[in-house]
Nucleic acid binder design. Structure first.
Ligand SMILES: [Zn+2]
Length: 549
DNA sequence: CGCATTTGACCCGCGC
DNA sequence: GCGCGGGTCAAATGCG
C-alpha cells in the first residue's frame, strides 16, 4: 500500500469521530483546489483535481450521498481513491511539459511537505483534544475520589465519635475517666486526614482509639487467666473493670494502649529495605527501643521500637539488618500514628497506613489482584517490583529501596510546609509516570516531607515512600496506583552514602512461607512467579522476615 | 534526676 | 505437653 495513501487514511480515522471535521482533506484542497474550500466532506474530494478526474469525481458523487452522515468505511475508501487520483495527477503534470517539470517537481515536493505539515498539525490538534479529554476525565475521577474519600472520612469520624462516647460512658461507669477517651476523637480525625486512608482497625473496631490496635494478637480481649499477673496488669480496663486500679498503677497511657481487641489490622505491615550504615533510619518519628531479640537465621539482632511522639501511639517498628548484606537495613512498620506528624514523618506514616488499607481492604487488594502482569507492565524492562503479601496473619508490603538505578533524581519540587496535607496525587502526574515509564522527577504529593532518612543532606526514602503512598492511596484498586508507586520508587535515590548507584529498586511480593525471591512476585499458595528479574541479586529470605509471622 | 537503652524474663501461638 | 520462636515487658543500667 502506498505510504501516502496510508497516511491519509489514518488522518481520516483521526477525524472520523469528530464528524464534519476534515482537516487533512481541507488542507489538500488548499493546495490543489482552493475554489471549494468552504465545502466539506466529500464535496471537496470530488473537486480534488477536478480537471483531470472528472470521471472518478462523477462516479464518486453518484456513490456517496452527501446529505448523510459520514460513513467511516466509505470515507476510507474514498480517501484511498482520492490518493490514487492525486498520484496520477502529479504524474501527468510532471510528464506533460518538460520545461516546467522541474518547477512542478519542486512544487510537488513543497505540496507534499505542506501536506505532511498539515497532517502533523492535524494530528497534533487531535492529540491535544484527546489530551484535554483525558485530562478532564482524570480531573473528574480525582474529584470523585476525593469526594468519596471525604465522605468516608466523615463517616469514620462519626463512627469514632460514637465509639468515643460509648467508651467514655464505660469509663465513667467504672469510675475512671480516661483522658484519652476525650482526646481520641480528635486524634483519630487528625490521623484519618493524615493517613488519607483510615485503616481497617478504625473501621471495624467498635472502640475508637488507635492504640487498641497495638496490642498484639496474643492479647486476648478477656482476661481469662487471673494467674497471669502481667496480663492482668497491663490491660483491658473496659472489659474487665477490676483492672482499673492496676491500670492506673501502670499509667493511663499504657492501659489504654494495651486495651485491645484482636484486630487483624494490626498485622498489616510495611517493610522497607534500605541501605544504611546507621543503626536506624531516620523517618521523622521519635522512637523508643523497647526490646531486642536475636532472630532465628540472622546473626543480627532485631530491635523493636515504638513511637514516642505521642503517648499511646500504637505504631511500632522492627529494625534488623539483612543477614547477607549487613548494609541493608530492614525496617518494618506497623500501625497508624494517632497524632499529627512532622512533614518528615508523613510519608512513612501514610505509607504504612495506605499499605494496611491496601492489604486488608478486600479481594481487589489482595495478592491475587497482583497476579496479573498487567499490573506491572514496566517490570521486565525497569526492574522494579511490588511486594505485596496479603496473606494472613501479617500481610506485608515490602519496599526494596536497596537497588536504585538512578542516583540523580534528587531534584524535586519543594515540599509544602503543611504536615497534614493529604498525600493525594494530583493531576496526571501519576499517570504520566505510570504510562511513560521512569520519570526522574518524583511525583510527590505535595504535603510530603523532605528527606530525613539516613545521613542528613541525603536524599531519602521519604521520596519513595511518599510516592508509593501517593500511588497506593490514590487508587483503591491499586492498579495504576501501584504501577505509579513502583515507578516512582525507581526514581528514588537511595538513602545512604552509598556505593549502590547502579541497581534498581525492587519491591517484592512476599509469601507466607517466607519465600522471598526478590525477583518474583509470588502467590501465597504456590509461589507462582509472575514476573521474574533474573538480573536482580537474590536476597536472602531472612531479609524480609515479617511477612511470614 | 529524668529519660532512653539494655537485657533477661515472660507471654503466647504454633508445630511436633 | 513441650519446645521453639516471635514479641513484649520492666527492672537494671547508662547517659546527659
Ligand atoms: Zn506515632
Amino acid at each position: 500500500m502506498d505510504r501516502k495513501e496510508m497516511r491519509i487514511v489514518d488522518t481520516g480515522e483521526f477525524y472520523r469521530p469528530n464528524s464534519g471535521v476534515l482537516l487533512p482533506i481541507r488542507v489538500n484542497s488548499d493546495d490543489m483546489d482552493l475554489s471549494n474550500k468552504e465545502e466539506r466532506g466529500s464535496i471537496e474530494e470530488i473537486n480534488f483535481f477536478s480537471n483531470r478526474t472528472s470521471f472518478r469525481q462523477a462516479e464518486k458523487a453518484g456513490e456517496v450521498p452527501e446529505s448523510s452522515g459520514r460513513n467511516p468505511n466509505l470515507e476510507s475508501d474514498r480517501e484511498g481513491s482520492k490518493l490514487i487520483d492525486l498520484n496520477a495527477g502529479l504524474h501527468l503534470m510532471a510528464n506533460s511539459e518538460n520545461g516546467q517539470s522541474l518547477t512542478n517537481r519542486w512544487s510537488t515536493l513543497d505540496q507534499n511537505n505542506r501536506n505532511e505539515m498539515a497532517e502533523l498539525q492535524a494530528e497534533l490538534n487531535r492529540l491535544n483534544n484527546e489530551n484535554q479529554q483525558l485530562r478532564g476525565e482524570l480531573d473528574r475521577m480525582v474529584k470523585n475520589y476525593s469526594a468519596l474519600h471525604m465522605q468516608f472520612v466523615s463517616a469514620m469520624e462519626q463512627k469514632n465519635q460514637q465509639a468515643s462516647n460509648k467508651k467514655e460512658m464505660i469509663d465513667d461507669k467504672n469510675g475512671v475517666r480516661s483522658p484519652e477517651s476525650i482526646q481520641e476523637g480528635n486524634k483519630i480525625v487528625e490521623q484519618q486526614f493524615l493517613d488519607l486512608h483510615p485503616s481497617i482497625e478504625e473501621t471495624t473496631q467498635s472502640e475508637n482509639n488507635a492504640e487498641e490496635v497495638v496490642s498484639s494478637k496474643k492479647r486476648k480481649p478477656v482476661d481469662e487467666s487471673p494467674e497471669r499477673e502481667r496480663a492482668s496488669q497491663t490491660w483491658e480496663p473496659s472489659i474487665n473493670g477490676n483492672n482499673n486500679n492496676k491500670m492506673l498503677k501502670q499509667g493511663m497511657m499504657k492501659g489504654v494502649e494495651e486495651t485491645s481487641a484482636m484486630n487483624p489490622c494490626r498485622k498489616a505491615r510495611v517493610s522497607v529495605r534500605a541501605r544504611s550504615e546507621a543503626p536506624m533510619i531516620s523517618d521523622g518519628c521519635q522512637w523508643r527501643k523497647y526490646g531486642q531479640k536475636m532472630a532465628k537465621g540472622n546473626p543480627c539482632p532485631r530491635a523493636y521500637y515504638r513511637c514516642t511522639m505521642a503517648v499511646g501511639c500504637p505504631v511500632r517498628k522492627q529494625v534488623q539488618r539483612c543477614a547477607e548484606d549487613r548494609t541493608i537495613l530492614v525496617t518494618t512498620y506497623e500501625g497508624n500514628h494517632n497524632h499529627p506528624l512532622p512533614p518528615a514523618a508523613t510519608a512513612m506514616a501514610s505509607t504504612t497506613s495506605a499499605a494496611a488499607s491496601m492489604l486488608l481492604s478486600g479481594p481487589t487488594t489482595s495478592t491475587d489482584s497482583l497476579h496479573s502482569p498487567q499490573f506491572f507492565p514496566f517490570l521486565p524492562c525497569q526492574s522494579s517490583m511490588a511486594s505485596l503479601s496479603a496473606s494472613a496473619p501479617f500481610p506485608t508490603v515490602t519496599l526494596d529501596l536497596t537497588q536504585n538505578p538512578n542516583p540523580l533524581q534528587f531534584a524535586r519540587p519543594a515540599p509544602l510546609s503543611s504536615p497534614f496535607a493529604l498525600p493525594l496525587p494530583t493531576g496526571p502526574h501519576i499517570y504520566n509516570q505510570t504510562a511513560y515509564g521512569p520519570q526522574k522527577l518524583p511525583i510527590l504529593p505535595s504535603g510530603l516531607a523532605p528527606v530525613q532518612f539516613g545521613v542528613p543532606n541525603q536524599p531519602s526514602l521519604t521520596d519513595t515512600v511518599s510516592a508509593a503512598t501517593a500511588a497506593i492511596t490514590a487508587d483503591p484498586n491499586f492498579t495504576a496506583a501501584l504501577v505509579a508507586a513502583i515507578t516512582s520508587i525507581m526514581g528514588t535515590p537511595k538513602n545512604n552514602n552509598g556505593n549502590n548507584n547502579n541497581n534498581n529498586s525492587t519491591n517484592n511480593i512476599t509469601t507466607p512461607n517466607n519465600n522471598n525471591n526478590h525477583s518474583n512476585i509470588n502467590t501465597n499458595t504456590n509461589n507462582t512467579s509472575i514476573i521474574g528479574r533474573p538480573s536482580s541479586p537474590q536476597l536472602p529470605q531472612s531479609c524480609t522476615t515479617f511477612s511470614t509471622n
